[in-house]
């Protein structure tokens, strides 16, 4: 499969030209955020799509992530006879790292790929050009509502992930592993502050911004019919996951160290 025009520029030329175009796209998005008409209805629609449609899947997935984390932590801490420390492990790993990452991943996979597919379809069927012709700016109409919605909704989505993953971990600890429930909760409370949770929500918000801009960018630059929409969607997922994990290091270093 030919992706982009790698053959002409070479892989690194392709990488840097894509990064440059993405930066230009970000700058345009920021510019039109303050410049043109603001489509409030689209913003509310997108908040609905990102929030309410991703939350059922996210709650199921984060419950399983929490359960898995609890079992793994138990296996590791049992080596020292410190089974009750599993609460600390679950709390720190969940609240700081996994919940924001999983929330970003699920919102990216559910809402983000839909954005890429939809904007890509609009691009290859010339609907974006049609929008420009009738004097609607595609950035303010399509991109900005999506990005803003993700940035605003993601903190709340991350809270849902916190709740379900910690609840599921608690249930596994009590039912499957036979630990003391109140000792588990005590370890969770002792090692997590409100500060950590707010920072995790901030992380989620940043991930939301990254995911939606990358997905909108990939869809916006799609070309080549039905095939091109598929390529744009699949590239959006890979780029979004890679960017999220990379930014995560810097966010962790910045917020928690």
């Amino acid at each position: 499969m030919v992706i982009g025009d790698t053959s002409r520029k070479g892989p690194f030329g392709f990488l840097f030209s894509e990064l440059g175009r993405y930066g230009y796209f970000l700058a345009e998005t920021l510019r039109y955020l303050f410049y043109r008409k603001f489509y409030l209805v689209n913003l509310i629609d997108e908040m609905n799509v990102i929030g309410s449609r991703s939350v059922p899947i996210l709650s199921a997935v984060s419950a399983f992530v929490g359960m898995n984390l609890c079992v793994e932590g138990y296996i590791i801490f049992k080596k020292f006879g410190a089974q009750n420390m599993v609460g600390m492990f679950v709390a720190v790993a969940n609240i700081r790292e996994l919940s924001p990452l999983v929330a970003g991943l699920i919102v990216g996979a559910k809402a983000g790929t839909q954005m890429a597919a939809r904007i890509g379809t609009m691009r290859v069927t010339n609907q974006i050009d049609a929008l420009q012709v009738i004097g609607v700016n595609p950035f303010s109409y399509l991109v900005i509502p999506r990005v803003l919605a993700a940035v605003l909704v993601m903190p709340l989505v991350v809270v849902v992930a916190y709740f379900f993953s910690t609840l599921a971990a608690y249930m596994v600890a009590v039912v499957q592993l036979g630990l003391n429930g109140s000792a588990f909760l005590e370890m969770v409370y002792a090692n997590i502050t409100l500060d950590d949770m707010l920072k995790g929500m901030l992380k989620g918000s940043v991930f939301g911004g990254i995911v939606t801009t990358i997905c909108c960018y990939s869809g916006y630059r799609a070309w080549g019919g039905a095939w091109g929409v598929g390529v744009a969607t699949s590239m959006a997922v890979v780029r979004m996951a890679t960017a999220m994990v990379f930014i995560n290091i810097f966010l962790t270093e910045l917020l928690f160290m």
Binding site: V71, T121, G228, G230, T233
Partner: peptide, 30 residues
């Protein structure tokens, strides 16, 4: 059908694969 069908298929496949992996992982770990 059409470009929208391709996009929808890609979208669905990514969502279901990620969910399936994360759910299955717990059972495999246990």
């Amino acid at each position: 059908r059409g470009a929208a069908g391709v996009g929808q298929a890609t979208n669905d496949s990514v969502v279901s694969s990620v969910v399936a992996i994360l759910v299955m992982n717990y059972f495999l770990t246990t």
